[in-house]
Amino acid sequence: MTARSLFVPTTLFLLATFLIGPFLIIVAASFSAGETLSFPPQGFSLQWILKVFTVESFRASFAMSMFLAIGGTAAALVLGIPASYALSRYRLPGAEIIRTIVSAPIIVPGIIVGLSLLRYVVVPFGVGITLALFLAHTALILPYAVRVVSASLDNLRSDIEEAAVLLGSSRLGAFFRVVMPNIKGGILSAFILGFVTSFNQVPVSLFLSGPGVRTLPIDMMAYMEIVFDPSVAALSSLLAFLSIGIVFAAERFLGFSRYV
């Protein structure tokens, strides 16, 4: 074999190791029988996987994360679907500016978003922790919602709405009868993307979390500062498999990658 023919496979192998390696280490560590987080794992046991379900704070923060991921994504879609519709169907003055503003939370580093929300919104207006987290997550998901929903709207010809109107439907009725059913896949994709984005969000949540109200990733960090046992690795593995499962299902049933 020549050096040239080895180059591509080697590069691919290194890339895969770089991407998947840490994940495999975490998964291996979560089946350890030892008392501390370590690699290679000492022995094999399911005790840390089972322990995850008994930690009270994990349960509370998991519930909070689920609430933010589902509620925040739903809210982002309620705002994002009409916004995408307006952006794609009407020639709005300043449409480009609106697009830019809507995608700002993707571009601006999370730490800055978190800090400025805390400094200029939460503190001065005395917004509650849960509400602050909810608003922040909605804003973070909105760009994804608008982008994915816009993509599927752009694939849909607008004359079917006119056809529906000429067959007796109102404009609003046409939206629900012929637009929504045809962008269903895009909406579900946006939902999954938003869900995963919110669930894995750290920097913004870090600033906004407060006493007794935390998202799961923040709670895991706090837990690790006190207890250095493999249950954090076990929880990470569980979450990773949950995400993989969701994305796989989405791709399988909806052709998710068409919309992203």
């Binding site: 010809r157 004359d159 079917i160 006119e162 056809a163 529906a164 012929v178 045809n182």
Partner: peptide
């Protein structure tokens, strides 16, 4: 319509 505009 020229494009038919059927509901897909």
């Amino acid at each position: 319509f020229q494009s038919y505009a059927l509901f897909p």
